[in-house]
Amino acid sequence: MFIEIKGIKRSFGEGESRVEILKGIDLGIEKGEFCVLLGPSGSGKTTLLNILGGIDSADEGYIAIDGERMEDMNEKALTMYRRKHLGYVFQMYNLIPNLNIKENIETGAYLSDNPLDVDELLKVLGLYEHRHKLPNQLSGGQQQRTAIGRAIVKNPDILLCDEPTGALDYNTSKEILKLIEEVNKKYGNTVVMVTHNDAIKHMADRVVKLHDGRIRENYKNDSKVSATELDW
């Protein structure tokens, strides 16, 4: 198993206000798999994604990536882990506002010894003619494509997507999902995507449904549908 998640527990707050978000998660994801984490608000999917991304830590349990356990990593090692293996895509894009589109993507390329060609990627993303613009001069969909470009330019082993279509309209959402699907196919990255949108489960290899901090369902799709065929 490429990603092994074992007995993960995580709570926030102290005393009476303590809330247990993850109550023991066991999960395995194979290399190159497109995994969708579904669940209502407060089910713990983003918390699990953040622990997987090394930007939050578990109270109990461990995560191992290709056999290497994250709990043994100090802050510096975690930074190197994110640098080498991860790409992150957020709902609100989180682009760096004072860098232009190309430079935002280059911030990802800078971290890799073997990055994809930035200009080529800009063309693939349909952003080449916008490359000198600042993020606030682009639409939400274009900004999210930039964020995806920044995440994949270093060709990461794992692409973590936290509600990547949460702030986008129907058509743009489908465009973005198609892009992620293509990236997954073309570069073979393992994709873990958190979403509210139940329809997205149909394009995943693996669907994990969380409820109240626990996995309610974990199954593999026998057949997937393309992002363009999704409807909600």
Binding site: N98, L99, E103, T107, H132, Q137
Partner: peptide, 25 residues
């Protein structure tokens, strides 16, 4: 109306362009 991004020479390293952007911002 819409602030245009100043074009910086892309031959300059990313870090230097980044710093220049911070300066301008």
């Amino acid at each position: 109306k819409k602030k245009k991004a100043l074009r910086l020479n892309s031959k300059m390293s990313l870090m230097n362009r980044f710093r220049l952007r911070i300066l301008l911002q």
